[in-house]
Structure formats: structure tokens, C-alpha cells
């Protein structure tokens, strides 16, 4: 919901990534700022207990520069707690979380190394968007113009002098992102940045994050919906109930699901016989109806070839793109969600 009188800023959104037009690095304008080469994030056997709740349990993963990494898990799986541990806001019960090899609070100029957007609510409702950024800029020692630059970058220039208290969720997300960019950091940590964004906003965010990674920055984006970040991320770290489920390139995750081929044929028995000759222990058949079956463990070329060799007539031969979302749900399905957000 936009507040009455609020300008519909979605008209300002540009579908093409803004970074092409306006380089967020501003290397020329801010020569004193540390060169924003991405740093590696390393979470090592991290655990966090809140009272009786194990929010994070023995979590280990790394996040590489120059890539967008999706940090995925259902609500309450410990994503936010992990991010807050990385940023020194929450003290781990055990293990470490390092940026460029040191704990966040030991970084020389943390605000110039890491930029984080943690929640959409960390604004004084009576302070304008621009003043919020100027406060951060003052503490970082950035020139005044930086606030206006990042506001433009996230498409909030027109709302710069409005109070954050009247912002829609989407605008708050953009302001959080702007705040994270203030110090021109090499590492960006964004907690559910797509929440509350409209479809144009999400498309814009995708291009924006890709652009940041292309510049060599480390980008870690959390989400509870894989499909939201599927088109953006190179790597994934999937957690459930505070524990690591899967980490690695998205492409290899897609490979972890078994291949399925759907076949329709008037001569089902002949096809089953033909497939028995090419399948192995991992192959299975599921009979859907008298003329339809699903083959698991073989690709469409193998199935088609076997059918052709046996002279079986086919009416349909499809290999659906692996459904990552169901795979994600399968990986993270563990009954009742435990732990804290």
C-alpha cells in the first residue's frame, strides 16, 4: 500500500539495469575510498543459541567475490541470525564468521568493506530518506553528494526529502539498499531485499545485483523463495532449521535432482520392454495411464533412441526443466520450522 499522496515511484523504475547508465562504484568521484574488490565471506562451524532455541547449528559455508550467492531457507531457518553473526550484531555461541579473514568488528573500516541491508524497518520515522543516508555518510566520512548518488541509483531521488515513516515497504527496501551502498562496499549482504518490491522492482533488483557482482563485488542475498532469486544467483547456500542442506553453484543443484522424462505411447508394454534394456539400477518407471508413463533416471534422447530402435510409436516425449522450487522445498522440508528467524 502506498500512502495517500505518495508519488507512484514505480513509474521511475527502469527495467534496464541502472548500473549500465550510472556506475555505482563512482571510482572517479571518490578516489579516497578503498577499491571495492569483493572479499570472501567465510562462516565456519557457526552456532547460535537463543535460550533453548538452536537458531544456527554448526553452519559452514563460504561466499565468493564476483558472484551473486543466494542464501536460502524457509522462514525461521536461521538466515537472519547468520547474517547478523557475520555483521557482529549477534555474538555466535560457537564458531566464527569472517570477512576477508577477520571478524567484522576487527575490520579497519567496516562500512567501506561491507554494506548490509538487514530489515526494512531501521529508520527513524520522522527523519527524511536523505537525512538517514547523510547520518550514515557522516559516520563513514563520505562526501554529501554520495547520499544523492545512491538515492538516484535506487530510484528514490523524488522521495529524498520525504520522511521514511511514510514509505511503502518497497520504498523502505530501496532506502535500505541505498544505505548499504553508502560506503561503496566490496561486499553486499542483503536480507530478503525483494520483499515488498513490485515485479518491475524485482526485475530491476536482479539487474542491479548482477551488475554489482560483475564489478567483482561479493553479493549475498537471502530469500525464502528460490524462484525469487533463481534467475539472479550463481551460487546457493541452502539452510533448514539452522543447518546447512546444500551449498554450491546453482547449476550443480539443478543436477542433484533426478532427470524425468514423460512419454505418451499407444504401445506402452513394448516401450517398457525397450527401456528395460537401456536403464540401470537408478531408472524407474511410473505408469500414469494406459498410454502415459514417466521415466526417471534417463534423458529424453535415451528414451527416444530406445523407442526408435524398438519401433515403438511415440505421441509425446518431454523432459521438463528441472523444477528447482520443488527441489528446494524437498531439501528444506523438515516438518515444523524450528529456530528463530
Amino acid at each position: 500500500m502506498r500512502t495517500p499522496g505518495a508519488k507512484d515511484t514505480s513509474l521511475l523504475y527502469v527495467a534496464t539495469p541502472l548500473w549500465i547508465k550510472s556506475d555505482p562504484v563512482h571510482r572517479d568521484s571518490y578516489p579516497l575510498v578503498m577499491s571495492p574488490i569483493g572479499q570472501t565471506l567465510a562462516v565456519d562451524h557457526l552456532s547460535k543459541r537463543f535460550g533453548k532455541v538452536d537458531a544456527v547449528r554448526d553452519l559452514t559455508f563460504t561466499v565468493a567475490p564476483g558472484r551473486v550467492t543466494g542464501f536460502l531457507g524457509p522462514n525461521g531457518s536461521g538466515k537472519t541470525t547468520t547474517l547478523r553473526c557475520i555483521l557482529g550484531l549477534v555474538a555466535p555461541s560457537a564458531g566464527t564468521a569472517h570477512v576477508a579473514g577477520v571478524a567484522y568488528r576487527d575490520l579497519e573500516r567496516p562500512g567501506h568493506v561491507v554494506g548490509a541491508a538487514l530489515e526494512a524497518s531501521g529508520f527513524h520515522p520522522g527523519r527524511t530518506a536523505r537525512n538517514h543516508l547523510l547520518v550514515i555518510g557522516d559516520a563513514l566520512g563520505m562526501p554529501r553528494g554520495r547520499a544523492d548518488d545512491v538515492l538516484e541509483l535506487v530510484g528514490l531521488s523524488d522521495a529524498a526529502r520525504r520522511k521514511a515513516g511514510g514509505f511503502s515497504l518497497g520504498m523502505r527496501q530501496r532506502l535500505s539498499l541505498a544505505a548499504a551502498l553508502m560506503g561503496d562496499p566490496g561486499v553486499l549482504i542483503l536480507d530478503e531485499p525483494a520483499n515488498g518490491l513490485d515485479p518491475e522492482g524485482i526485475a530491476w533488483l536482479r539487474g542491479f545485483l548482477r551488475g554489482l557482482a560483475l564489478e567483482g563485488r561479493t553479493v549475498l542475498v537471502s530469500s525464502h523463495v528460490l524462484s525469487e532469486v533463481q534467475q539472479t544467483v550463481d551460487d546457493v547456500v541452502i539452510i533448514s532449521r539452522g543447518q546447512l542442506v546444500e551449498s554450491g553453484p546453482l547449476a550443480s543443484l539443478a543436477g542433484t535432482g533426478a532427470m524425468r522424462v514423460r512419454v505418451r505411447t499407444p504401445n506402452r508394454e513394448a516401450l517398457v520392454t525397450a527401456l528395460a534394456g537401456v536403464g540401470d539400477a537408478n531408472t524407474s518407471l511410473e505408469l500414469i495411464s494406459s498410454d502415459e508413463l514417466i521415466v526417471t533416471g534417463l534423458d529424453s534422447a535415451t528414451v527416444g533412441h530406445a523407442a526408435h530402435g524398438a519401433g515403438v510409436e511415440l505421441h509425446e516425449l518431454t523432459q521438463p526443466v528441472n523444477d528447482l522450487e520443488s527441489l528446494f522445498l524437498e531439501l528444506t522440508a523438515t516438518g515444523n520450522p524450528g529456530g528463530a528467524a
Binding site: 557482529g88 568488528r105 548490509a116 563513514l140
Partner: peptide
């Protein structure tokens, strides 16, 4: 949060 991010 933003205060401590700049000054841990």
C-alpha cells in the same frame, strides 16, 4: 543496526 554496522 545501521549505527553499529558503521561502528561495530
Amino acid at each position: 543496526t545501521s549505527t553499529l554496522l558503521v561502528t561495530p
